[in-house]
Design a protein around this nucleic acid. Structure first.
Ligand SMILES: [Mn+2]
Ligand SMILES: [Mn+2]
Ligand SMILES: [Mn+2]
Ligand SMILES: [Mn+2]
Lengths: 218, 218
DNA sequence: CTTTTATTTTAGGCAAAGCTAAAAATTATC
DNA sequence: GATAATTTTTAGCTTTGCCTAAAATAAAAG
């Protein structure tokens, strides 16, 4: 049960985010971790020696099974900490990501298990993203983009994509939260914007807002 | 509000632990951080450049006011996290120190403030050690060693020194916890061991156990 | 199928943090 | 006060992780 540096873990996380189990290009990885390509070449060489990735020069980098396991365990910690910060400490869902990026590197199986219990064995984090299970299984990725429903449908918001702080601000000012339910009133044939109705009135959501908000029929 | 590396923070913490505001020798510091003297010489030079310590070659290293502020803020985080781990996650008080050594390096004022509130604004950690206030003030260091009381006194355990895991195991098997109250029955003139009485019976504590257990009259 | 463009790797540096071994300074001893 | 023992510093090396600039390779365009 070796231990990894923060940098290593960030590369693994980036690889999982970009490609999942598929190979990722040097350039994309460099962009994601915020380093230069040359640094990435070196870094993945180190990861390769630890059997966390397979590197094919000029072709791409791919997580090994071991790398995937590590990626999921970091993601699990990230999302559990986000849940803690929102549910227990009262942070806004737009504030917790940078903090979770620090907390996700704390190493202790025991701590993760206890945190998980303390939070009531959650399956999804404050943004609706699935929290990997202890054994690596992934709960379902919930919902479809709002635009995918048809007029008349009753929907419940179950997930939002992290589309930056302005997006979260907009959700905030419109009072849109996970769990909210609406009726789909209209879907514009012109610009794909959507009119949502609730007991208290109705309002329009732009196409780009809709694209980042996921819901299920309720 | 610059940010510090984990190594830097560990040196600062070690300096505060060893000398408080007083100078500390290279050797003592090396021993405490688990590095060689030569590494320490280098490290404190770097800390000096950041105005966290004053170095007098061959003489010793001393925290600056800025260094003291940092030391206290790390200690605050350490002890708040220990409180969280014990009070909220149900860890034993003998298990939390290594975890807190990781968590103490998480950087976020906001997180510390919210954690503090969440825990009910505690003044002391699970071992009875004072938690520095937001502004650097220190709550009182509680209690006197058990041997300092006189026979007949009613006492309450308020603090234990971290004297290693065997010490904690011993406390555990003897069922001794913070908050417990006893009567001092006897203090041996021969070996300074102490007989404590409780409603359920009485038992003897060796001198070296007593030296690490602090109590107040109750 | 060349040539141009874009991507990736190499080569060479730098800073943080550690190490060992040798030199220098301090402290203790006779 | 000179010498021996201890402590501290210097010098030189290592690894991680990042950088820039140049060389090599792959992909796109003609
Ligand atoms: Mn996140
Ligand atoms: Mn991270
Ligand atoms: Mn502790
Ligand atoms: Mn530490």
């Amino acid at each position: 049960m070796k231990t990894h540096t923060e940098s290593e873990e960030n590369y693994i996380k980036a690889l999982y985010h970009l490609g999942g189990e598929q190979p990722v290009s040097n350039g994309d990885l460099a962009q994601r971790v915020g380093a230069k390509g040359s640094s990435v070449t070196q870094a993945v060489k180190r990861l390769g020696q630890k059997d966390l990735v397979n590197v094919v020069p000029y072709k791409g980098v791919q997580l090994t099974p071991k790398g995937i396991r590590l990626a999921k365990s970091i993601l699990r910690k990230h999302r559990l900490w986000e849940t803690f910060l929102v549910d227990k400490l009262g942070f806004g869902w737009d504030e917790v990501h940078p903090l979770a990026e620090q907390l996700e590197h704390i190493q202790s199986e025991e701590l993760v298990d206890r945190l998980f219990q303390f939070l009531g064995s959650p399956k999804h984090d404050p943004h609706g993203d699935p929290i990997p299970e202890r054994d690596g299984q992934m709960p379902p990725v919930l919902g479809q983009p709002i635009g995918a429903f048809t007029a008349g449908a009753e929907i419940r918001i179950v997930r939002v994509e992290d589309a930056g702080s302005e997006f979260f601000d907009q959700l905030d000012t419109m009072n849109i939260n996970l769990g909210n339910t609406y009726e789909i009133r209209t879907i514009s044939a012109f610009d794909a914007s959507v009119e949502l109705g609730s007991p208290t009135g109705s309002f329009w959501l732009s196409q780009s807002m809709c694209a980042n908000i996921y819901a299920v029929q309720s």
